[in-house]
Amino acid sequence: MTATRRAADTLILLVGLVVLWEILHRIAGETAMPAPLSTFAYLVHNLATPRFIANLTTTGLELGYALLLAYGIGLAVGVWLGAHRLSGAVGEPILVSLYSLPKITLYPVVLLIFGLGISGKVAFGALHGVLPVALLTTGAIRAIPPVYLRAARTLQLSPWQTITTVLLPAALPEVFTGLRIGFTVTLLGVLLGEMFASKEGLGAMIINALQLAQGEEMMTVAIVLFAFAALANGLLLFVEHRLRRI
């Protein structure tokens, strides 16, 4: 009963957002803010065009590579700082302060090092994602109760068995939270990269559309990105809840 009512309430809010959009459209005019209906029509007609698919593929590839880097480096650094006490004590605050810096200021440096092609955007995306992955992995490993290790020793587990059957399962839910947050900020990093001095990808598409005053295209890209990000996040959250046995 209450679950359906809640879903209905959320739906009403979604409809409210579309109404708000329509009102904004009436105020701002056709070029600045296209109507919801014409945007959805545009979306349906253009989603399958080669141009859209090419940009989507570029962004997807960049995101994929960036995630690979962010996860690989982040997990390695996280395990190191979590397992080695002195490194953790020295390194973690450095990572925390790096995490809270506005990384957009470093984008020109990334571009100077990696160039304007796909690698610059991959590096910038990975730069965003690596820190939360590392920090949450460190926290996850450090939060493993020491009694688990003592239990493993009383059960005569080998070091490898201890890692695979005790430490990994114990740390996994928290590590996965890091991967989820890492996904979100990596996507943001890749998109920010595409929005500056780039010709390819969904981020570049939005800036192009702004310059060509194509409101429908802007809103279409935004909707596609929102839907993709929300869906991916929902999926990752689902897995996370399963891991946490919620």
């Binding site: 904004l24 600045a32 979100t184 998109l191 702004l210 802007m218 809103m219 990105l225 929102f226 929300a230």
Partner: peptide, 19 residues
Amino acid sequence: FATYYAVPVFIFYPVLIAI
């Protein structure tokens, strides 16, 4: 709220410039 920071809200910046 649960998804807000998972979607790239910043992508709306160009839309706001258009308006």
